[in-house]
C-alpha cells in the first residue's frame, strides 16, 4: 500500500518556517521563515536520513522571509521578504536586492529559461524583471489587475507564461505581447484566498489550493470566442476548472506541489499523514525536483521542516 514515511527532521530555524525549495541541479534544500534567515541543507548519508545545515544566509532581510526560489541553473537563490525587497543570492558573490514593492513581498519565481523573474506582494501588484549581466535586474512590467494581496507567482514549465494567485480569490495568467505584458485570463471559482498554484510538467494543467479548503484543477482549453472575433480580441487559451477536490482538509490549504513525474493529475487520495507536523500548521510542501529523488517530499511548518519519502 502506498504510504509516506518520515525520513528526517531538519532542525535549526528559530521561528515558523514559511517555505522550502529544492535546488533543480543538486541535492540541496533551501528553507526560510520568520527568523529572517535562509538555511541550506544537504544530506550526509546516502539513505537521506541525516541532513546538515551547511549555510545560514542572513543579514540581508530585516523582516520575515516568506519564500525562496532557485534559478533553473541552480546558481542563484531568490528570496521574497516582508521587508518589501527581493534578495538574489549567489555563492561567493555579492548578490543583488530588487526594490520596488510598497510593502510585503510574498513570492518570487524564475522563468524556465532563467531570463525572467516575477515577484508579487501585498501591494496587489505583480512585477516582472529581466535578468541582465552582472547581477543586474531591470523591471520590465508592473501589473496591477488583482484587486487584493497577491500571494504567489509561478512560471509555466516551458513558456514565458506567468500565473498569480490572490487574496481576491482569483488566479490570473499573464502573457507578453510585443514587449507589453497583459492579463490573458482570470480563473474564477475559488470562494476564498488562493494561496498556492502549480503547473503540471507539460504545463497543460494548473492546480490551485485555497482557504476554501479545496483544490481546483484547471485545464488549458481552446479560446472561448474563436469564431467571428479573431482580430478583434487577442485569442488566448481559456483555463477551465475541470475538477474540484474537497472534503480532505478541514482548514485552509496553504500549499500544493505537483512534483516532477506526473503528466496528468490524479484525483484519488493515495497516501496521507494525519498531523504530520503535530498540531502545527503546514505552510509549504515541495516534491524534490530530480528524477532520482522524485519520491522525496519536504514540508515546512510552524514547528520546523520534515522530509518524507513516498513509498509506492
Amino acid at each position: 500500500m502506498p504510504r509516506l514515511e518520515l525520513l528526517a527532521e531538519l532542525k535549526g530555524h528559530t521561528d515558523r518556517v514559511w517555505s522550502v525549495a529544492w535546488s533543480p541541479t543538486s541535492n540541496i534544500l533551501a528553507s526560510c521563515g520568520g527568523d529572517r534567515t535562509v538555511r541550506l541543507w544537504v544530506p550526509t548519508t546516502s539513505e537521506l536520513s541525516q541532513w546538515n545545515c551547511t549555510n545560514v544566509l542572513e543579514g540581508a532581510h530585516t523582516r520575515t522571509i516568506r519564500s525562496a526560489a532557485w534559478s533553473p541553473n541552480g546558481r542563484y537563490l531568490a528570496t521574497a521578504s516582508f521587508d518589501a525587497t527581493t534578495g538574489i543570492w549567489e555563492r561567493d558573490a555579492n548578490g543583488a536586492t530588487l526594490e520596488g514593492h510598497e510593502n510585503e513581498t510574498k513570492s518570487v519565481a524564475w522563468s524556465a529559461s532563467g531570463a525572467l523573474v516575477a515577484t508579487c506582494g501585498r501591494d496587489k501588484s505583480v512585477w516582472i524583471w529581466e535578468v541582465e549581466a552582472d547581477n543586474d535586474f531591470e523591471c520590465i512590467s508592473v501589473q496591477q489587475e488583482h484587486t487584493q494581496d497577491v500571494k504567489m507567482v509561478i512560471w509555466h514549465p516551458s513558456e514565458e507564461l506567468l500565473a498569480s494567485a490572490s487574496y481576491d480569490d482569483t488566479i490570473k495568467i499573464w502573457k507578453e505581447d510585443e514587449d507589453d505584458w497583459y492579463c490573458s485570463d482570470t480563473l474564477e471559482g475559488h470562494e476564498s484566498t488562493v494561496w498556492a498554484i502549480d503547473f503540471n510538467k507539460s504545463g497543460d494543467y494548473l492546480v490551485s489550493a485555497s482557504d476554501d479548503k479545496t483544490l481546483k484543477f484547471w485545464k488549458k482549453c481552446s479560446p472561448d470566442h474563436v469564431d467571428g472575433n479573431v482580430g478583434k480580441h487577442r485569442v488566448d487559451p481559456k483555463w477551465k476548472c475541470i475538477y474540484t477536490l474537497s472534503g480532505h482538509h478541514q482548514r485552509c490549504i496553504y500549499s500544493v506541489s505537483n512534483g516532477n513525474n506526473d503528466h496528468t493529475f490524479n484525483y484519488t487520495m493515495v497516501a496521507s499523514i494525519p498531523s504530520a507536523h503535530g498540531v502545527a500548521d503546514i505552510n509549504c510542501v515541495q516534491w524534490h525536483t530530480s528524477e532520482t529523488h522524485s519520491n522525496l517530499l519536504a514540508s515546512a511548518g510552524d514547528d520546523g521542516i520534515i522530509l518524507n519519502e513516498y513509498v509506492s
Binding site: T64, E104, K106, D149, K151
Partner: peptide, 11 residues
C-alpha cells in the same frame, strides 16, 4: 478575512 489570514497577521 483579514483577521483569519495568518500571513497578514504575521506581517
Amino acid at each position: 478575512k483579514q483577521l483569519n489570514d495568518k500571513e497578514r497577521v504575521a506581517a
